[in-house]
Design a protein around this nucleic acid. Sequence first.
DNA 1: CCCAGTAAGGTACTGAACGTACCTTAAGCA
DNA 2: TGCTTAAGGTACGTTCAGTACCTTACTGGG
Lengths: 200, 200
Amino acid sequence: MEGATRRRGAALEQAILRAAADELTESGYAGLTMDRVARRAGTNKNAIYRRWPNRASLGVAAYRQLAEVELRPPDTGALRTDVLTMLRRINSDQSSPRGDVLRGLLAAVNDEPELMAQLQSQFTDGGAGAWLTLLGRAVARGETSPEALHPRVATVAMALLRNEYMTRGLATVPDTTIVEIVDEVFLPLLKGRERPGGSR
Amino acid sequence: MEGATRRRGAALEQAILRAAADELTESGYAGLTMDRVARRAGTNKNAIYRRWPNRASLGVAAYRQLAEVELRPPDTGALRTDVLTMLRRINSDQSSPRGDVLRGLLAAVNDEPELMAQLQSQFTDGGAGAWLTLLGRAVARGETSPEALHPRVATVAMALLRNEYMTRGLATVPDTTIVEIVDEVFLPLLKGRERPGGSR
DNA sequence: CCCAGTAAGGTACTGAACGTACCTTAAGCA
DNA sequence: TGCTTAAGGTACGTTCAGTACCTTACTGGG
C-alpha cells in the first residue's frame, strides 16, 4: 500500500510512464495493456486516460522514456572502431527490446500522423547528430572527405542496422552482421567518396 | 448468392485469400478482421480457421499474394537508370499499401518465428536475386567492380528504401529521396570499391 | 442409385482489452 | 473549515479473436 498519501499531478504521471515503459520492455507493445499499466502504477485506467487519449499515445510517450538514453558518440581515435562501438552500443542497449517495441509502435501509430512524427523524431533526428560529430572528427583526422557529412550518408550504417532489427525476429543482431555493414558498406562508402553523384 | 453450388477445397481457399488480400490493401493489417474476411469471401470464420490457425497466419498468407509480383530487374543499359527504375518501381507498386501492411505484419508476427521467417523470405531473399543480376550486367559493362556482387552491398539501396517506408507515415517515398539514396549512397559505394574492408 | 464421410454454413458463446460513465473519496487551497 | 479538483473504484458497452456444436450440402464408393 502507498501509505495514506495519494499521488497527484506530475508524481502520478511519472509513475504511470515508468510503469508503461517497464511493461514495454518486458512484453513489447503488444503486451502493453491499459489495465496492467494501471495496476503496475498502482492506479486505475481513468488516471491514464485523463493524460493520454489512447493506448498508442501512451506507448509513444513511454517509448520516449526508453529512447532518451543519450548516445554520445564514442571517440576512440579511429573511424572504424568509433563506428563499430557506436553500432554495438545501439545494438546491445536497445535493439532487443526496441526492435519489438518499435515494430509494434510503428504499426499502431500508422493512422495518426502526429504520433508518427513524434516517433520518427526519436530516431531519425536523434541519431544524425551523433553520427555527424563522429564523422566530423574523422574528417579532421583526414580519414574521410567532408562529403561524408551529408546526413543521408552519415546515417547509412544506422539505417542498415535498424533495418536489420526491424525485419528480424527477436534477438539482437549478430556481431558479424555489424562488422559486415561497417566493412562492406559504410567504410567503403566513406573512403571511396571523391565526387558527389548526380542531381544536387 | 453463389447459386446452388457450395465451394470447397482449393476454390474456397483461393476466395478467402483473395478476400484477405483485398482487405489488407484497403485497410491494412489492423483492419483485417476475421469476420470481415469471412463475409467478403462469402463464407464464415470456421472455414478460415480450418486452414489457418490465427489471424497473423492468414495475414502472412494473404501478403504473399500481394508480394508475388515478380520484379524482374530492368535493363536500360546503364547502371544508374537501372537502379532508379528498380527503386521507383518498388516504390510506386508496393510502398503505399505495403508499408502499412508490412509494419502491421511484422509487429503481429513477432512472437512466431516460423511466420517471421516466411515474411522475411518475402523481401530479404526475394529482392537479392534481382539486384544481383542487375549488378551483374553492370559489372559486365565495366561500370562497377565484381565486389559489388556481395549481397550485403547489392541490396543496400533497397534496404535504405525499405527503411524509409517502414519509418514513414502513409504515402509513398518522395522521388527526391530515391534519387538521393542512389546518388549519395549507392552509386558512390559501387564506384569507390577498390579493396574490401577489414575482417573477411 | 443410395449412403456414409467429409467439408462447409450458421450461430452462439467466452474472454480479452479498449474506451467510457458515474460515483465516491482524498488533497490542496483560500 | 469548506470548496474545488483530481484520484480511486467499479461497472459497463463494444469489438474482435478464437472455439464449440450443430445442421446442411457435396463427393465418391459400393
